[in-house]
């Protein structure tokens, strides 16, 4: 059986701030987290992550977003509050995060949890190949890590 709690980071680490989600996962790997938690860097996500989402008790998704808010802003949603699909980034070749969730709910309704938290990190520059993230996003990554730990009720590590 898959571990009860899944934390996934989406993004491309070579596209600057787009890699925010991947880096949150990297940072979380530095902690000794309880055994019931699985951390996954899922790259650009899409249809391929559906199986990963199934049979969990709780899912946390960290992804870069572009909404026009100041770079580094954190956007936090529960499943029922998720905005339209337009909010999230998608691969040109695949479905986006919201569609993936909706598809999982439609095809595997009994196997997908409702306890889903999505953390969007507002990205700055994402149009040039670089592995450097902006200072604002670096701070946001640290904040997102704290937020994830808080969500999991983890205080002592």
């Amino acid at each position: 059986m898959p571990k009860p709690i899944l934390i996934i980071g989406c993004g491309n680490p070579l596209m600057g701030d787009d890699g925010a989600g991947n880096r949150v996962i990297e940072k979380l790997r530095e902690y000794k987290l309880p055994d019931n938690i699985e951390l996954e860097d899922v790259g650009v996500g899409g249809l391929g992550i559906i199986e990963l989402l199934l049979d969990r008790k709780k899912i946390i998704v960290v992804d870069a977003v572009k909404t026009g808010a100041p770079t580094g802003t954190l956007h936090v949603f529960r499943r029922e509050e998720l905005p339209s699909a337009n909010f999230f980034m998608i691969s040109p070749h695949d479905i986006g995060l919201l569609e993936t969730l909706e598809l999982a709910e439609k095809v595997f309704p009994e196997r997908i949890t409702k306890d889903i938290l999505v953390i969007g990190i507002e990205a700055g520059v994402v149009t040039e190949y670089t592995d450097i993230v902006s200072e604002e996003v670096k701070r946001a990554i640290d904040e997102a890590v704290k937020l994830v730990l808080r969500e999991l009720d983890i205080t002592e590590l």
Partner: peptide, 17 residues
């Protein structure tokens, strides 16, 4: 043609209008 112009990422805003 299944284009993937950027050979890049999901950095593109989602289902833009």
């Amino acid at each position: 043609y299944d284009p993937c112009n950027s050979c890049a990422t999901h950095t593109l805003p989602g289902k833009m209008p």
